[in-house]
Amino acid sequence: MRHLSTITKPEKSWKLITVFLGYDPIGRKHKLVSIPLNKTSDECRVLTLGSDQESWRMVKTNYNHRPLCNRISYECINGVLYYRACFDRKEDVIMSFDVRSEKFRMIKLKWDDFDGTGILITYKGRLACSMVDYADHGLSLTLWTLKDAERHDWSPINFPEAPYHPNDQRLKTAFSFSGITDAGEFVYVPSDFRQSFYVMYYDPKRKTRHIVEFKGIANDEFRLKHRLGNRRVFNIFTVPNHIESLTSLCNT
């Protein structure tokens, strides 16, 4: 829509916050969920975007927890927002937030905790947590998929042929796992880039891969404007299953 909105801070007493974006496919509403980041809390603030009264509301989470915030710490699947959190100051858990009913649930893990490379992704319409499998032949990928949130039921799927941190000597690029497309291809992105970069797709069934080059992201004009010089640009955000919307065309 190319429209920017300024959102007020939800709570003045909160010094550090994290904000998650959720979508309710039934009510067709987007909601922001804001939680304090530097302390444990049993409440949050919720804002419904596009409503007549755009104001933050206090919602009880019923669980005293602290979210673990980074760019790979949450997913929204079928109207449910999932994010990583620390419960009781020591236990790693997954928190879920039903965007429509605004109810929270704590989901326990079947493994001890996340390692530094684990991320939350969508796999075949379900929440999945990626983990590194330290096998004899190198780092492979294991996905723990959520079968039943109420029973904390997780099921592991191992992909021994899918490396977690592949290296391409020809391109001189080190890739890291970023997500999975609806077609089942694993997406790998570089940890940093300059004027151009590569994205690698791996098909675990066919055991094939293809590489796509992206050009002109951080060109000279971009670098001059943002005072980057020759420094590297970090954090490549990927949306594996992006779909272009034609809504604006239909409304004209």
Rank of each mutant, 00 (worst) to 15 (best):
E43A: 11
R151K: 10
I94N: 01
W14H: 09
E11H: 05
S13T: 11
D98F: 01
K90P: 04
Y74A: 11
H65I: 09
I157D: 07
P36L: 03
L68E: 15
D153N: 08
R105Q: 15
P67T: 03
V189I: 14
G179P: 01
N167W: 05
D113P: 01
P204S: 12
L246V: 03
I157E: 10
Y23I: 13
L224R: 12
S101L: 12
D113C: 12
L143I: 04
H165M: 00
I107E: 06
P190F: 05
E244N: 00
S13V: 00
E161M: 10
L246K: 00
I107Y: 00
S140F: 05
D133S: 15
T238Y: 00
S130W: 02
K29Y: 08
C86R: 05
I236C: 00
K108Q: 15
L120S: 05
T238I: 09
R100D: 15
R206L: 14
G184T: 05
P156L: 04
V132G: 06
Q53G: 13
L141Y: 02
S248A: 13
E102Y: 06
K15D: 11
L109D: 10
L249M: 10
A162L: 06
R223C: 08
S34A: 15
A135M: 12
F186C: 09
T208M: 12
P10K: 01
C76G: 04
D112A: 14
W56S: 08
H30F: 14
R57P: 07
W14F: 08
I77S: 06
D136E: 15
T117S: 13
V80H: 04
S176V: 11
K31R: 14
G184W: 04
R71P: 12
E221Q: 00
S41R: 05
F159G: 06
G125P: 12
R206D: 15
S96K: 03
S191H: 04
H137S: 15
G79C: 09
I107N: 00
V93A: 01
K15I: 13
W14L: 05
I236H: 01
H152S: 08
K205M: 14
K124P: 09
S155R: 10
N78V: 07
S155Y: 14
S155L: 14
Y198T: 10
S73Q: 03
Y202E: 05
Y63T: 13
K172Q: 12
E102S: 11
K110V: 15
D148V: 03
R2V: 11
Y23P: 06
P204Q: 08
P156V: 06
Y134I: 14
L49P: 00
K31G: 08
C250I: 03
N241D: 00
E221Y: 01
F237Q: 03
Y83L: 05
W154E: 04
Y164V: 10
P25C: 13
V239Y: 00
L21N: 11
T173K: 03
I107T: 11
P67M: 02
R2P: 10
L228D: 01
N230Q: 09
K207Q: 14
S130M: 04
N219V: 03
H3V: 07
W14I: 07
A85N: 04
